[in-house]
Amino acid sequence: MASQGTKRSYEQMETDGERQNATEIRASVGKMIDGIGRFYIQMCTELKLSDYEGRLIQNSLTIERMVLSAFDERRNKYLEEHPSAGKDPKKTGGPIYKRVDRKWMRELVLYDKEEIRRIWRQANNGDDATAGLTHMMIWHSNLNDTTYQRTRALVRTGMDPRMCSLMQGSTLPRRSGAAGAAVKGVGTMVMELIRMIKRGINDRNFWRGENGRKTRSAYERMCNILKGKFQTAAQRAMMDQVRESRNPGNAEIEDLIFLARSALILRGSVAHKSCLPACVYGPAVASGYDFEKEGYSLVGIDPFKLLQNSQVYSLIRPNENPAHKSQLVWMACNSAAFEDLRVLSFIRGTKVSPRGKLSTRGVQIASNENMDAMESSTLELRSRYWAIRTRSGGNTNQQRASAGQISVQPAFSVQRNLPFDKPTIMAAFTGNTEGRTSDMRAEIIRMMEGAKPEEMSFQGRGVFELSDERAANPIVPSFDMSNEGSYFFGDNAEEYDN
């Protein structure tokens, strides 16, 4: 993207840094990872977990959730003011799984939030270390993106479920800051804005008074975040219109849905970061690795190297396929839920299948599930090659597409044709070009129609051997075009429920 120079890199967003050079960025990201790792080690000690239990991804998720809940100030305040039966607002906890007599047992633990905050700050040299908290939120978000298709949420806001490739980060909490905003897809931002506008339509006082002023500035800020994701002048001009509207209503909703559809071809720039579970960072720190000293990046080879040398386990339900569970977590670790499966298959070195073909449910185990038949197995999170994460949407291309997802959002900077089903997408653009945004709409449609099938995206960008740390010898991959490109292809993934 041309304006790259004016933006802070995501590592800076990730670490609240002012302008830093590459070495400083690597050190501050490393410091953040160190903090998460030290916190995780301490929690495993508190909970008396064995090494194996500490490497269980379900335990990692519970521990991450506990610290996120302990620092969720708004919710904590709300819980104190609106006490609900049987919930102690000062405590947080969740299921911890232990191996007892050759069987997995679930144990519900409860801790004072104050105590968890103390352990977290102690692991982070006394700081609140917001960057580390956001990092864990993005890992949870990436896992949700890989596990669930947001059909219901899309339909509720009037969008087409086939636009799911635009929904990265749709389950990120509001408090995820600049680093969170960077990884949100165009569809996620559109959905947040539509929800806001709908509230304004239904509630006369939404934009009024002292609160209304705050609401208005939040609305304009979200519009600017979305505008910054678009790469064409016409899309940005249309966002200006939406932002400046005196009284946002149905016309703005129409414009936003139009823009979301246009992003299936004229893709937005959305950041991709490899955020790993805390149970990967903990053992690495415990083994003596100093992330701050060595430096770390979320968008280069580092996460690949770390996963190459990590042992992570997962509980497996009786009829689940461990290899499929591994694929789910591998995609989440690489922030690749909406990437082209052919690119992923090449990088991973084994075939990556669409969601609907995987015999696996989510990673988390519900409290009512029976533990008797639970097994555990090693997650295979290694890769054959590594590639640089991208934040450009890439230019655009036609490809055989599917009944489910009709476009992709690249996660890796790797040369390819970008699949999208042009006739299906263009069919949504018939007729409606009147109104105050008509010239911009016409211009956007013209650009979409001009998108050429034979153009290559990320020209000359390749993948790298894991021994090639400096990215000196790019390998331009070859793809098996007979395979499906979309992950949520004609899909039956479970729906995400809060």
Rank of each mutant, 00 (worst) to 15 (best):
S310H: 10
T390G: 02
G200K: 05
L341Y: 10
T396N: 04
N124V: 04
Y148H: 09
I225T: 14
S359P: 04
R55H: 14
Q415R: 14
S176N: 03
R348W: 06
F258W: 04
R236F: 06
P419S: 02
S353E: 04
R382V: 03
Q235E: 05
M440V: 01
I365F: 12
M43F: 10
M105Q: 13
D127I: 11
D16P: 00
E252D: 10
L47R: 12
V363H: 01
I96N: 03
L466Y: 15
P83E: 08
K357E: 13
A387H: 03
T92A: 11
N492E: 01
S467M: 12
D51F: 02
G180Q: 07
V285Q: 04
S326G: 10
N492S: 13
V312T: 14
D51N: 15
R348D: 03
M374H: 08
Y385C: 06
G490D: 02
A218H: 03
E81Y: 13
L49Q: 09
S297Q: 03
A251Y: 11
S9H: 00
A284Q: 04
V183N: 01
N395D: 05
R118N: 06
E449P: 11
R102M: 09
S9L: 15
R348T: 12
I33E: 08
E107S: 12
E24P: 01
S467A: 01
A2C: 00
I425C: 15
R221I: 09
G490H: 03
K422E: 05
Y496A: 10
V100L: 14
R400V: 04
C223S: 11
D439Y: 04
E115A: 11
P89N: 03
V312K: 01
R221S: 08
S217E: 02
G288M: 10
E64Q: 06
I388E: 02
G282D: 10
T215I: 05
S407Y: 05
S176H: 03
D468S: 08
T232Q: 13
D72V: 07
T62K: 01
R38A: 12
A123M: 06
E73G: 07
Y385L: 09
T424Q: 12
H140S: 11
M43Y: 08
A260F: 04
S457C: 14
G169Q: 04
M32P: 08
C223R: 10
K103A: 14
T430E: 00
A427K: 02
F458C: 01
S326I: 12
W104R: 09
R342L: 02
Q4H: 04
Y289T: 05
N432H: 13
E53I: 08
W104G: 06
S314Q: 05
G35P: 03
Q398A: 04
D497N: 15
P83F: 03
L466P: 12
P354F: 02
Q398C: 06
F230L: 15
F258P: 04
N492L: 02
S287Q: 11
E495R: 10
A181Q: 15
R118V: 06
E244Y: 02
L56T: 15
S359R: 15
D128N: 15
Q241M: 10
F458G: 01
T92D: 11
V270F: 09
Q235I: 10
L418A: 02
A85F: 03
L79G: 04
L133H: 02
P453M: 06
E469V: 13
R174I: 04
T433G: 10
F412H: 06
A263G: 14
K305H: 09
R342I: 08
A284K: 13
K31I: 05
S413M: 05
G404N: 03
N395A: 13
T433C: 13
G37E: 14
M426C: 15
M331W: 04
S402I: 01
P453R: 15
M196E: 07
V242T: 05
R174A: 00
R74C: 04
E107L: 04
E115R: 09
M137R: 03
L61K: 02
A251P: 06
Q122W: 01
K31W: 04
G450I: 13
S50T: 14
G54F: 02
R355D: 08
A366E: 07
Q235C: 15
I41V: 12
Y10H: 15
N76R: 03
D51S: 10
V463Y: 12
T45Y: 02
F71H: 10
T188N: 04
K229V: 04
R121D: 04
K351R: 11
A493T: 14
G288D: 10
N321W: 05
E454P: 03
R348G: 08
A218V: 10
I253M: 14
S486F: 12
H272C: 02
R8G: 04
P161S: 15
G30P: 01
E81V: 15
G349F: 10
D72E: 12
L110C: 08
Y296H: 09
S60L: 09
I444M: 11
R118I: 13
N473G: 00
T6M: 02
A271Q: 07
E375V: 10
Q409M: 13
L379D: 02
V363D: 06
V280E: 08
L276Q: 12
L193G: 13
Q235N: 01
R195Q: 06
L379H: 04
E494N: 13
V109P: 03
A284S: 07
A387Q: 03
S359L: 12
I265R: 00
R446M: 05
F206C: 09
E494A: 09
R75L: 02
R204M: 06
C223T: 14
R261F: 08
R75D: 09
M426T: 15
L68D: 02
A237H: 14
V100F: 11
F39G: 01
G17I: 06
L79Y: 10
P173V: 09
A428F: 14
K357C: 11
D72S: 08
C279A: 13
R74I: 02
K91D: 02
L108A: 06
L108C: 14
R261L: 07
K422Y: 09
D290R: 07
G200S: 08
V408T: 15
F429R: 01
A27T: 11
V100Q: 12
L49Y: 13
A27S: 10
P477E: 03
E73D: 08
K77G: 13
A131L: 01
T23F: 08
E192G: 09
G93P: 11
K357N: 14
K214C: 03
G300T: 03
S345W: 04
S217W: 08
G268T: 14
M1W: 12
Q149S: 11
C279K: 10
E294F: 04
E494S: 00
Q327M: 08
Y97T: 06
I63H: 04
M189V: 13
E244G: 12
L298I: 10
K351L: 13
A471L: 01
W207G: 03
I25F: 05
L226V: 12
G185I: 03
G295S: 03
K305C: 07
S287Y: 10
I96K: 08
E53Q: 11
Q399T: 06
N432A: 14
Y97S: 06
K77E: 01
F458E: 01
M374W: 07
F71D: 09
I33T: 13
S262G: 14
S69A: 13
E434R: 04
V352C: 05
Y289G: 03
T430N: 14
F479I: 15
E53V: 06
V414D: 00
T215E: 03
R150I: 08
L110K: 12
K305V: 07
A182N: 15
E443W: 02
G462P: 08
Q398D: 01
G450C: 14
M448T: 14
S353L: 13
L307P: 03
E369N: 04
R355S: 10
W330R: 09
R204W: 10
A411D: 00
S269M: 09
R55P: 09
E434V: 13
P354W: 00
A271V: 08
I257D: 00
L266V: 15
M167V: 06
P283N: 04
R175Y: 01
S392I: 10
K77D: 01
S84R: 00
A153R: 06
C275L: 06
P419Y: 06
M481Y: 07
V352M: 08
Q399W: 06
G54E: 09
A234I: 12
R117I: 13
E369H: 14
F488A: 01
I225C: 13
D127C: 05
F489M: 11
P161C: 06
G249V: 08
M239P: 02
L108I: 09
Q405D: 01
